[in-house]
């Protein structure tokens, strides 16, 4: 649901009734029989341990050098990023029907625009409150009648028609993933909107840019990936990446993860690793595809932009070594407005 609410949503009051977990609980208890509501607030499901994809390395094709090497970023850091895009999500158990969990999820995305060194919100933030329920095992009609479009099925059949078993933990994980997808969709919407309207103003996007063809082709979009469960370097190249010094970048590579558009990417060391592990201050940058002769200059330019964002520090966020202050500002904004 967009920040600008639709007329229909306003009319039926669903938006208002889902503005908080307690409001959603009241609505469900009123409209759906046999719902047991959770008490005590409940921890965000994002904190629960989940089976995550194992860290791994992938060899990538070089786009700048035949062999991946370290390149000092020439010139002084230059601030040029005009905006920062990030999203947040929060899921928590709302209640149960029998043993089946109902999850309340909030996802949001915002662009924080920098004007005269001050960050302000560009346009309207996008915020969505939804309830994630295993409709294959729950009273579908009552839930759909009560929640309409604000309901998401966590037991949607796979392409082969199978549905997941009613394992409560599995259902919780599926709900959390669904909230993540909603958040990504909101981020994507805003990124596309920016690229369409402000094509000449660089925007830093938290994460990759390949999930949207439009964004992946936009020269203004700069994706910054902070997590490194997948490292696009193998063998000697991995050693080069992990040994990058402060202000150095790797050669540009070409990556095209499954289901995503092809983009150019490189690793950049933002901070010195002295006394720290090899991933400290390391980010992977993504930009749109470019002609080979221009790649080096463009990668250096964007690297200078990103090095300029090392200050101010995004502390106290634990990822402050890799996080730009503008990205933290976006997260803080959403935390303040959606919680």
């Amino acid at each position: 649901m967009d920040g600008a609410r639709s007329t229909e949503e306003t009319k039926n009051g669903a938006f208002e009734t889902l503005r908080s977990v307690h409001a959603a609980q009241r609505l469900l208890v009123r409209l759906v029989p046999n719902v047991r509501t959770a008490t005590g607030g409940g921890s965000p499901l994002e904190r629960l341990e989940r089976e995550l994809e194992l860290p791994h390395v992938i060899d990538a094709e070089g786009a700048e050098d035949a062999t991946l090497r370290a390149r000092p970023v020439p010139g002084a850091p230059t601030p040029a990023i005009r905006a920062f895009l990030d999203g947040t999500q929060r899921s928590q158990v709302l209640g149960w029907i029998g043993a089946l969990p109902l999850v309340y999820g909030t996802s949001g995305a915002v662009v924080r625009q920098r004007v005269e060194r001050q960050l302000t919100t560009w346009g309207a933030p996008l915020v969505r409150h939804r309830i994630y329920a295993p409709l294959a095992y729950a009273p579908r009609e009552e839930l759909e009648g009560a929640l309409g479009a604000h309901l998401e099925d966590t037991t949607r059949p796979a392409p082969d028609g199978s549905i997941p078993p009613p394992h409560p933990t599995l259902l919780l994980e599926r709900a959390t993933l669904a909230v993540s997808r909603d958040r990504e969709r909101l981020e994507l919407t805003l990124a596309e909107r920016w690229c369409a309207e402000r094509a000449h103003d660089p925007i830093m996007i938290d994460g990759g840019i390949g999930s949207s063809e439009l964004v992946a082709r936009s020269a203004c979009a700069v994706g910054v990936v902070k997590s490194h469960r997948t490292l696009y370097a193998d063998g000697d190249a991995l050693g080069v990446v992990l040994a990058l010094g402060r202000g150095e970048r790797s050669s540009v590579i070409r990556i095209a993860p499954r289901g995503r558009s092809e983009v150019l990417s490189w690793y950049l060391r933002l901070r010195s690793t002295e006394g720290r592990d090899a991933l400290w201050g390391l980010v992977r940058v993504e930009m749109c595809m470019a002609d080979t002769p221009t790649i080096t200059a463009r990668a250096d330019e964007i690297s200078r932009w990103l090095l300029a964002e090392c200050s101010p520090l995004a502390a106290p966020d634990p990822r402050w070594d890799r996080m730009a202050y503008g990205i933290r500002s976006a997260e803080e904004f959403l935390r303040a407005t959606t919680n």
Binding site: P77, I81, R114, Q118, L119, A308, S311, Y325, E332
Partner: peptide
């Protein structure tokens, strides 16, 4: 002295 070069002012 580097404070003046920070591209963003803190909230």
């Amino acid at each position: 002295g580097q404070a003046a070069f920070a591209p963003t002012e803190r909230a």
